[in-house]
Simulated assay, not measured.
Amino acid sequence: MLPDLNPRHDPPRLLLAVAHPDDETFGCGSVLAHASSLGWETTVLCATRGEAGEPAPGFDLAGRPLAEHRERELWAAAALLGVTRLALLDFLDSGMDGDPVPGTLCAADPLAVTDAVRTVAEDVDPDVVLTLDAADGHRDHARMRDAAVAVATERGVPAYLQALPRSLMDRWVAHMVTARPEMAHLQYAELGTPDEEVTVVLDSSEHLAVREQAIALHASQTSPYEGLPPDLRRDFLARDHLVRA
């Protein structure tokens, strides 16, 4: 699956470190499904329960906190994607902007975040670490990216960033400016990773159906792929773009 990977374990072990419930599916669902289909052991480490998210229009919280719904959705989607183990940290979601309040991921000492990732990595002993590249502008994604890459470097294992190529993000923004102009992401210039920095492109089209099912399980959240033209949606979901950190 990864051309330069020399795993020390059989089966290989992958650790995915993300900030919020749904990052594992919206961002890395096809990689997880692909690894699982090859018999890999996959661990998802999620830092928060997504408290600062916005419920999808029409979603009924049924009197329960949003975080409770999002955690349930995370467990269900991870199981569908064949995840071997799920680890949840106790940081709070920082939200997109404003001063991060105490207890949130971005208010925490970066060394404390790295230490929390390190503790899980010591138990998992991964052959490769995966995280989001944070090219969507979300500060929590950047915090987890930095911690995950630091821990992978310490352990001497490769780290890969799930990338959003700029060419795709330009097409996404062009559509969203008309379809959903209220989206906070649209305020950020040059979303995405320059295409020339992408080092691995995985054809994950055979896992498209299961990823679509996992996306649907995150019913409390509006998918970033919601309402996209079919060709653009498929270009996002049927290929994975990775950058070697």
Rank of each mutant, 00 (worst) to 15 (best):
M1L: 05
D4H: 12
L5K: 13
L5D: 12
P7A: 01
R8P: 02
D10M: 15
D10P: 10
D10K: 14
R13D: 11
R13C: 05
R13T: 00
R13M: 05
V18S: 03
V18G: 02
P21D: 04
E24H: 06
F26R: 03
F26A: 13
L32V: 14
H34P: 07
H34K: 14
S36K: 01
S36V: 01
S37C: 09
G39E: 05
W40R: 07
T42C: 06
T42D: 03
V44R: 00
L45H: 01
T48G: 05
T48P: 09
R49M: 02
R49H: 05
P55K: 06
P57H: 05
G63N: 07
A67E: 10
H69K: 04
R70H: 00
E73P: 14
E73Y: 07
A78W: 11
A79Y: 09
A79N: 12
L81M: 07
G82M: 09
G82T: 06
V83I: 08
T84S: 15
S94D: 00
M96E: 10
D99G: 07
D99Q: 12
V101Q: 13
V101K: 15
G103V: 08
C106D: 08
C106H: 09
A108F: 01
A108S: 11
D109V: 06
A112M: 11
V113F: 01
T114V: 10
A121N: 04
E122P: 08
V124N: 01
V124S: 00
D125R: 15
P126H: 06
D127H: 12
L130G: 01
L130R: 02
L132K: 13
L132I: 07
A134N: 04
D140Q: 11
H141F: 06
A142M: 14
A142K: 08
R143C: 03
M144G: 10
D146T: 15
V149K: 02
V149L: 09
A152S: 11
A152T: 11
P158F: 04
Y160M: 08
L161I: 12
L161F: 10
Q162P: 08
Q162D: 08
A163C: 13
L164Q: 12
L164Y: 13
P165M: 03
S167Y: 04
S167V: 10
L168P: 11
L168G: 01
D170V: 13
D170C: 09
D170E: 12
A174I: 09
M176I: 04
M176E: 10
V177R: 15
T178V: 13
T178W: 11
R180A: 14
P181S: 02
E182W: 15
E182G: 09
M183F: 14
H185W: 13
Q187P: 08
Y188M: 05
A189C: 00
A189G: 02
G192S: 03
P194W: 08
E196F: 11
E197V: 09
T199S: 15
T199F: 09
L202S: 08
S204L: 15
S204T: 15
H207F: 15
E212V: 10
E212H: 15
Q213G: 08
A214T: 06
A214R: 06
I215L: 10
I215A: 01
L217D: 06
L217A: 04
H218P: 02
A219M: 06
A219D: 02
S220F: 02
Q221H: 01
Q221P: 09
Q221D: 03
P224Q: 03
Y225A: 04
F236I: 05
H241T: 06
